[in-house]
Design a protein around this nucleic acid. Structure first.
Lengths: 218, 218
DNA sequence: AAGTTGAGAGAGCATCGCTCTTGTTTGTGA
DNA sequence: TCACAAACAAGAGCGATGCTCTCTCAACTT
């Protein structure tokens, strides 16, 4: 039953966005009455939380597949493929992407349950760098500027992500990460429409540049 | 009257976010009845549009001040200052930032009125590069990868932004632009909380790196 | 003084999330 | 087999929401 509710709620989100998700509409679709849903979900927020986790896992798995499928490829190419996979996932289900990376739902604080699934994508991306580092195919980036304070916080982050790379590389990873999702968010939310004609093309160039910025071998 | 409505609506957004903006609540604050507001705004969407334009103009002006105030400074420093100004604006009014760069309000399509004010920030940032280019203080970036297709679309963009720079620089500008707002969005929407301890510090390092990536002289 | 205009008030419609009570179904232990 | 408890769904209702419609009333114009 929970699964059925989640499924129709998911398709509602896919169609109209999470903010427009209505418990009553979901219930109607299931041939039930809205109050019946409260037996399975304490409230609308919990339904949304479940949907968020579902979406994070979907995106995470999708990314992991792309990363795994390119094992042995040049690191730069792996990064580009992974980036394209993420973009593909996002553009085919923009509302789910907005649910994850858009404005947090008002009055809603994402509980800690969403944290672990949320880091899955990032960890998959980091694996590319880790593999490249293990194979000694990682050039130290030149353009990054790591301050002392940032370097300090990197001690913890290096352990958290399990990548034994230089501070400059770690910063480059963070920047590529925000770059990737920043560009995607801009595209999906319409910010690029005034400046960019072909988003797909720009995205690929951007991904290539990120790979170079991190020092991934081509 | 329109101004009074906009003012209290703006403070409501600042407090609870745009999605939670209620016409009735705004009317209550003004000692009126909700239906009275419809004399001044055709509907909720139009009120939001007005607020968006207001916010874009506020952020645009704020950025322009920062860019103008650093005239004559090294280009890299100007960029960092402008970036910090944008971050300051965003962190002091996160809901307004979310209104501009977050998930578009469901069922709401931003009308063309918002386009011009929306590009103000970007144009202010571009001015830094244009000035550097005019003073011949712009090194061609090495890390960017411009494909043929992207290069083609840059012909138009170069005219639109009025910057006569190399393709590689133009791409670097676009990337820095999305990088800047991508990082900010991640910070404000809570995506960095699992990886980053000090967002302000990272942001500064990121801004420095962007400046280097665009070839801005230090 | 009469007519016109604009602004606000009020009632009402459909919808929302959520709660509480009531009725029904189902499964299980004696 | 029977009885009881737990699970489930329905329905009414509360306080909200955006929005429409009609009505009143004051001010301004002619």
């Amino acid at each position: 039953m929970r699964a059925a509710i989640l499924a129709t709620a998911g398709s509602h989100v896919a169609e109209h966005g999470a903010a427009a998700l209505s418990l009553r509409a979901v219930a109607r679709d299931l041939g039930m009455v809205s109050s019946a849903l409260y037996r399975y979900f304490p409230g609308r927020d919990d339904l949304i939380t479940a949907l968020i986790i579902q979406a994070y896992d979907s995106l995470g798995a999708h990314t992991e597949v792309a990363v795994d499928a390119t094992l042995g490829f040049p690191a730069a190419q792996r990064w580009v493929e992974a980036a394209l996979a993420i973009r593909e996932w996002a553009t085919t289900q923009p509302h789910a992407y907005a649910l994850l990376y858009g404005t947090p739902v008002p009055g809603y604080a994402a509980p800690d349950d969403t944290v672990a699934p949320g880091t899955r994508v990032s960890r998959a991306l980091v694996r590319i760098v880790r593999d490249a580092s293990a194979d000694d195919l990682l050039e130290p980036p030149s353009a990054t500027m790591v301050s002392d304070g940032t370097a300090e916080s990197f001690v913890w982050l290096r352990g958290e992500l399990d990548v034994d790379v230089a501070d400059e590389t770690l910063l480059a990873i963070l920047l590529a990460w925000t770059q990737l999702f920043g560009l995607l968010t801009f595209e999906l939310f319409g910010q690029t429409r005034n400046f960019v004609h072909d988003d797909a093309l720009l995205f690929r160039d951007a991904a290539e540049t990120m790979a170079a910025g991190m020092g991934l071998a081509r």
